[in-house]
C-alpha cells in the first residue's frame, strides 16, 4: 500500500511539473535570468501553488499521532542553518543557474528530454555518489 501511494504521489508530482511547464529548463531559466528583458514569473506561481496544500498538510500532521499508513512523521530538524547546509545550497544554485534543471524536473524529463537530460541526470547521480563516499562514513 505504501508503495502504491508513493507511486501515485510520484506520478502526480510529475504531472504537476509538466502542467506548470517547470519540466522545461528554458522556462526555469526565464525566471532565474533577471537581465533577459523578459523575466518570467511562472516559477513563483508554481512554488506558491505547491506550498498551499503543504501548509494544510503540516497542520493536519500536527494533530495526528502518526501517518495514515503508520510509522512516524518526519521529526523537525533541530538547529539553524550551518556551513554544510549553506555550502550545499550554493553548489546546487550554481548547477541550477547554469542549466535550469533541478532534481524533480530532471527526473521528470528523463525519458522525454533526449540525451542532454539523461546526461545531466547521470552526472547528478554521480554527484550524489561522490557525496556518499566522500562526506559520509556509511
Amino acid at each position: 500500500m505504501r508503495r502504491l501511494i508513493a507511486g501515485i504521489a510520484g506520478a502526480v508530482f510529475g504531472f504537476g511539473l509538466v502542467l506548470s511547464d517547470m519540466i522545461d529548463p528554458d522556462r526555469v531559466l526565464a525566471f532565474l535570468t533577471l537581465n533577459s528583458g523578459k523575466w518570467d514569473p511562472t516559477l513563483a506561481f508554481v512554488m506558491g501553488g505547491a506550498i498551499l496544500p503543504m501548509l494544510l498538510a503540516w497542520r493536519i500532521s500536527a494533530q495526528r499521532e502518526q501517518p495514515f499508513l503508520g510509522g512516524e512523521f518526519p521529526p523537525r530538524p533541530t538547529g539553524g542553518p550551518d556551513r554544510k547546509l549553506m555550502a550545499g545550497a550554493i553548489l546546487f544554485g550554481i548547477g541550477w543557474g547554469v542549466i535550469g534543471l533541478c532534481p524533480g524536473p530532471a527526473l521528470a524529463g528523463l525519458l522525454i528530454g533526449g540525451w542532454p537530460v539523461a546526461l545531466f541526470v547521470a552526472a547528478a547521480f554521480g554527484g550524489m555518489a561522490l557525496y556518499q563516499y566522500q562526506f559520509t562514513r556509511a
Binding site: P77, K84, L85, M86, A87, G88, A89, I90, L91, F92, G93, I94, G95, W96, V98, I99, L101, C102, P103, A106, L119, F120, V121, A122, A123, A124, F125, G126, G127, M128, A129, L130, Y131, Q132, F135
Partner: peptide
C-alpha cells in the same frame, strides 16, 4: 551542472 546539483543537494540536505 549535474555534478553540482547532485553533490550540492545532498550536502545541503
Amino acid at each position: 551542472a549535474g555534478l553540482c546539483v547532485g553533490l550540492g543537494t545532498r550536502l545541503g540536505s
